[in-house]
Structures are given as C-alpha cells and as structure tokens.
C-alpha cells in the first residue's frame, strides 16, 4: 500500500476510536492489505493519538493462544502499543462509555528494568530484564464492526487494544513459576474460568521474547519501565454496567476491576 492509503486507514481508525464508533473491516475495503501494511496503519493510528497528547507507555501482545491463532489462521502473536490514555489503576472504575464493544481478558503484565533489544532475545533475557510482574486485565475493544476481524484488521486497529488495569501485587519472576502459575477469573463473585501461564506461547516469557525480537526487526524501541501485557490466559469476558471482575494469579495475587456505564454497542 502507498503512504496515502496507509494514512487514510490509520486516520479512519483514529476517528472511529475518538468518536466511539466502528468501521467496516479494512480487508473488505482493501483485500490486499499485508501484515506489514497493517503495522504501518497501526503506527499511523498511534501517531495520531500521540500527536493529540498521549505518550507511549508500553506494548501489548495478542493472538498468543492456540485457539485464537487457529481462529485467525496465523501462527504467531501480534502486538499493539499502550498509551497513557489507556491506563487505569486497580480500584478505579472503568467507564464503559469510553469504549465501543469491550471484552475483558486476564493476563500477566511485565515491567522491564532494562531495555530489551532484539533480535536474539530469549526467554532467559526476558526474566533477567524484568523488574516485576503483576496480574492485570486488558479490556480489549474493536473499532471494526461486530469484531469481524482478520489478522490484518486487528493489527491495524492496534491489536484491538482498549484500556488496561494493573493489579497492585508485584512478583519477581525468579521467585514465581510464571509458566505454571494458575489463573482464576471470577465475575461478580462467581468462578468464570481458569487458565495457566503456559496458555501464552508455552510461557508468558516466550511471548515477551517474541515481542522484543519483532520490535528489534522493526526498529521500534523497547525500553526499561515499559509495561508489557503478555497475552490472555483466560476466556474473553463480556462486561456491562455494574460488573466486577477479579483475576488471581497463583503465588502472586489478584487484580480487581469494576465497570460502570454503557459502551457504544
């Protein structure tokens, strides 16, 4: 795609995000979009958000589980950028009015104490460079109508990122088995589903290493202090006004989040 097309679709996604509405799948409008094109569209969309005052605070990794990869017909994860406007603290109430068609996922987040420069990064480097891990929720959202996404659509749409909330419990990956740590997700006091770290690329550290290497190839910096959402360990949970979710990572602790208001769809 030429630069003009990239800008057009990046701007369309930015406008849809700002106005809380959806647009038709990009592949329906432009059947030949490649994955590389999709990441350029994402970059344009994020540049627009940064130009409007946000800063880049981290990355999210998506499409990390086998069922989602099978569904989308891809055999590697994808990533998006986390911006300052997406951040909630544990205890905050997430206003669904700022979102379009949100769903929640329980994940393990990494905070780096050293830069990770790919290519050549392994899971061992990830553990070494990690300051701490925390339980978190990512509230995914799609600017694409009815979530009718293929891999190019979700990548262009910043990996369907909405907002996220980090728990307060900090863990050291040298003391915690992040691969076998269980994930228990409760909705409104009832067990919703369970999972385990290995659901993410065999181990969440593998997903972060993939990200470091991918960013290295693209020349995108991956800096100390950045937050990395490593990929969903739970089922997708629909959320509505008044809902409360708690996810607990075995050996680490919990993240609790409440929702109020109505999303656009």
């Amino acid at each position: 795609m030429n630069e003009e097309q990239i800008q057009h679709y990046g701007d369309a996604l930015y406008d849809a995000w700002r106005e809380r509405r959806t647009i038709a799948p990009l592949l329906e409008q432009e059947p030949d979009i490649t994955l590389a094109d999709a990441y350029r569209i994402q970059l344009r969309y994020i540049e627009r958000r940064v130009a409007a005052g946000e800063t880049i605070v981290g990355k999210k990794i998506g499409v990390t589980s086998k069922p989602v990869q099978d569904f989308l017909g891809v055999f590697q994860p994808d990533f998006g950028q986390l911006t300052s406007g997406m951040v909630y603290q544990e205890g905050d109430v997430i206003d669904l009015g700022t979102l379009i068609q949100p769903k929640a996922e329980a994940e393990l987040a990494f905070v780096l104490k050293e830069d990770l420069q790919g290519p050549g990064v392994t899971a061992m480097d990830v553990i070494r460079a990690t300051d701490y891990v925390v339980p978190c929720f990512e509230i995914v959202d799609s600017r694409i109508t009815d979530w009718k996404i293929r891999i190019q659509d979700t990548v262009a749409d910043n990996a369907s990122c909405g907002v996220y909330v980090l728990g307060k419990a900090k863990g050291d990956p040298r003391k915690l088995d992040i691969t076998l740590a269980g994930m228990v997700l409760e909705k409104n006091g009832e067990l919703h589903s369970t999972g385990v770290g290995a659901a993410v690329q065999g181990s969440p550290a593998n997903a972060v290493a993939w990200l470091a290497n991918t960013l290295g190839e693209l020349g995108i910096p991956f800096k100390a202090g950045e937050v990395i959402l490593s990929g969903s360990q739970s089922a997708l949970v629909p959320v509505a006004d008044g809902d409360e979710l708690v996810c607990t990572v075995g050996g680490l602790g919990s993240c609790r989040v409440k929702f109020s208001g109505r999303s656009a769809v």
Binding site: K66, D177, T179, L180, A181, G182, M183, V184, T194, G195, V196, G197, A198, A199, G202, T248, V249, G250, G251
Partner: peptide, 17 residues
C-alpha cells in the same frame, strides 16, 4: 490457584487452574 498443564507427546492438550 494451582496451575496445571497436561501434555501428550510433548504438546499441550489441556490447561487450567
């Protein structure tokens, strides 16, 4: 909250807590 991974012939086939 104990996590569990079941592998068959080296491949993860079931997971949970």
């Amino acid at each position: 909250t104990l996590g569990v991974v079941l592998e068959k012939n080296g491949e993860i086939v079931a997971m949970g807590a």
